[in-house]
Computed example of a mutant assay.
Amino acid sequence: MNSHGQYEQQVVWAVVGTDIGPLLLAATREGLVNVVFHAGDAVREKALERLASRLGAEPVEDPGSPLLTEAIRQLQAYFSGERHGFELPLDWSLISGFNRQVLRELASGVPYGTVVGYGDLAERVGQPGAAQAVGAAMGSNPLPVVVPCHRVVESDGGLGGFGGGLETKRKLLALEGVLPQPLF
């Protein structure tokens, strides 16, 4: 028998089709732990290997897991325009320190249909001048879409970078009514 605290970490995953392509969702007992863009076979394999090594457990495909079912339901409602925020337990264990602080502020303080500059976000966590570090935090966001790093843009109106690719960022901002719908 495992002693308490040594129990097997359970990681479940599923892939959901969305307007921005397939998303891999992974969850632990704590909550949703990872969302991965463009989750075709190769990307999925790599993401699952990374999760196994980071979380110390082999992820198991289980789209029927209650946690994933709810995450999938909320994501589908978001993409169909019916939901403007996520109410899901999140597991922040893939990220720590400054990056976690910035992402938590983003999750709680930058609502649907709004955007924030990298520098503004740095100021909000008490680190004015750390705009580049904020950019790095966005790049390492393990929970994109749910933790809305697509809402962080450059102060001059540029889109800034995006782990999922600028086309994806543009589509998400268009969905939220921040940008005109892409023409192509």
Rank of each mutant, 00 (worst) to 15 (best):
R50I: 02
P148I: 05
V146T: 01
E167A: 10
E87K: 06
T168R: 12
V35Y: 02
V116R: 12
F184N: 09
S96Y: 00
S80K: 03
G177T: 06
E45D: 15
V178C: 12
P63R: 11
S108T: 14
G129Y: 11
V134N: 11
P142F: 09
P142L: 09
I20C: 05
W92R: 00
L23T: 07
K171Q: 12
P111S: 02
L75M: 10
G163Q: 08
S108H: 10
A130S: 08
L23H: 08
E61Q: 15
V60T: 13
I20P: 09
G177V: 08
Y78N: 07
S96V: 02
T28W: 03
T168W: 02
V11K: 06
P111K: 03
R151Q: 05
E8Q: 06
E105T: 13
L172A: 06
Q10R: 13
S53V: 09
R50Y: 05
A133T: 15
G165T: 02
E87C: 09
L121R: 05
L143I: 12
S140T: 07
V145I: 15
R124P: 01
G139K: 10
L24N: 05
E45P: 00
A26V: 08
T69H: 08
S155K: 14
P66T: 02
G21K: 08
I20D: 00
V102G: 06
G40C: 00
N141R: 04
G81Q: 06
L103V: 00
D120I: 03
Y118R: 06
P63H: 07
V110F: 05
G40P: 00
E176G: 03
L68Q: 07
E82C: 01
D156L: 08
